Simulated assay, not measured.
Amino acid sequence: MADHRAQVVDLLAGYRRSREQLGAVQRSLATVRETVTSEGGLVAVTVSASGTIVDLAINDDAYRVLRPAALAELIVRTTAEATARVTRKASEVLAPVVPSDTDPAALLRGTADLSADELTPAPAADFSDETFEDKSWMQSGGARDARRV
């Protein structure tokens, strides 16, 4: 009986250590940020470890130098670079607490150990040849079937 209690105490201690470690990692991830400034300094984007834009600075000259579509593209490119950099930083924080065969960057992307086939969306069903003209569920026996339910 005492042996089982010792096992339970050990399990609880291990659980508490794991939770403390998880909390420390979460606190560290919450502080990870990356700021990238575009070439020419027209745009600066700061991204959090989750890939969320937390700050966006657009130089006043950007509106005079770039057309709206070009400015939008510059913001997207700069954000992508900041996201790539912050993912590398966050992966370094996460690496010590995940199994050695786990890719921390894939885990952060939400893909973990999924293969390319598993990540590819299934093709949408093709209903283009179906028509519902002049059809009624009430005339096809559907109403009769519905009453039986």
Rank of each mutant, 00 (worst) to 15 (best):
S136E: 11
D126E: 08
P99G: 09
K89P: 03
S128Q: 06
V32E: 05
S128C: 15
T131R: 15
P104Y: 02
A49M: 00
S100M: 11
A84V: 11
G14C: 11
L71Y: 02
M138L: 14
G14M: 13
R17Q: 11
I75V: 08
T46W: 02
A122K: 12
F132R: 07
P68A: 14
V32A: 11
S48L: 15
E81W: 02
P123G: 08
M138A: 12
R77Y: 07
F127T: 14
A72R: 15
A70S: 12
D145H: 10
P123E: 11
A105R: 01
A57F: 08
V76Y: 06
S115V: 07
G40I: 04
K135Q: 12
L108Q: 03
A122L: 13
E118P: 02
L11M: 09
V32Q: 02
L11V: 15
T120I: 13
L12G: 12
G51M: 04
L42Q: 01
E133S: 10
T78V: 03
I53R: 06
A90Y: 02
L119E: 07
A105C: 15
Q21E: 13
A143H: 08
D129Y: 11
A112K: 05
T52P: 05
L74A: 03
Q26M: 15
A44I: 04
A84E: 07
P121K: 14
Y63C: 08
A143W: 08
L29C: 04
A143E: 07
A30F: 01
V98D: 01
M138P: 04
G23Q: 12
T87I: 06
T46F: 00
R67C: 05
L94S: 01
L66S: 02
I75Y: 01
G110K: 04
E92Q: 13
R17N: 09
L114M: 09
R27F: 09
A80R: 04
D103L: 05
G51R: 01
T37W: 00
E133N: 11
T35M: 03
N59S: 12
A30P: 14
T83W: 03
D103F: 01
A62L: 03
L66I: 11
A116P: 02
A2L: 13
Q7H: 10
F127W: 14
R17P: 04
T52W: 03
G110W: 01
A82C: 05
R64S: 13
E92K: 14
R64G: 14
P96G: 08
D61T: 14
E130N: 12
P104H: 03
T87S: 05
T31N: 07
T79V: 06
S91N: 06
S28A: 12
L56N: 11
P123R: 14
G110P: 01
D60L: 13
R16M: 14
L108R: 02
A2I: 13
A84H: 03
A2F: 08
P121S: 14
D134K: 06
